[in-house]
């Protein structure tokens, strides 16, 4: 494990995994903050979901992604999902968190798919895989 973490190389686009091993999303962007008087910015949060990915993709596709994602959200809510960097416990091939998926609300599309499709199929709400 490298002691120095390169934000671009070691964080961006990496898989985020919650405390129970469930897949939360990718590090679609990072929130950086330059504290007053500090020399360099500090990563304060991982940003996930289409609201973070869209602007990073750029172009027409990025705009489309953002506007599609907006339809699943309450009016006026355009902030990407934010996971404070304090919740990160391990940076490896994936980024492990100390919180669970429920505490990181990345799952609007998942919820939509579950409500509109999966739970309506026979056996869609069963427990075992």
């Amino acid at each position: 494990m490298a002691s120095v973490i390169d934000a671009h190389l070691h964080l961006l686009d990496r898989q985020i995994v919650d405390r129970d091993g469930r897949l939360i999303g990718k590090v679609d962007d990072l929130e950086l903050e330059l504290a007053p008087g500090a020399d360099y910015p500090v990563v304060t949060a991982l940003l996930c979901g289409p609201m973070a990915l869209g602007p990073r993709l750029g172009g027409r596709l990025g705009v489309w992604l953002v506007s599609a994602a907006r339809r699943l959200r309450p009016r006026g809510d355009t902030d990407p999902v934010r996971i404070g960097f304090g919740a990160v416990t391990e940076v490896g091939p994936s980024i492990k968190l100390s919180i669970t998926v429920e505490q990181a609300p990345t799952l609007r599309l998942e919820q939509w798919c579950l409500e509109k499709v999966i739970s309506r199929l026979p056996g869609g709400t069963r427990e075992a895989g």
Binding site: Q15, I16, R22, L23, I24, G25, K26, C48, L53, L109, E110, Q111, C113, L114, V117, I118, S119, L121, G123, G124, T125, R126, E127, A128, G129
Partner: peptide, 20 residues
């Protein structure tokens, strides 16, 4: 690509997007 939960090792309701 998007980092969604996938696979048959979890219940379908935990990987709704993957199944869709």
């Amino acid at each position: 690509y998007f980092g969604w939960q996938w696979g048959k090792y979890v219940a379908p309701k935990q990987a709704a997007r993957f199944h869709v």
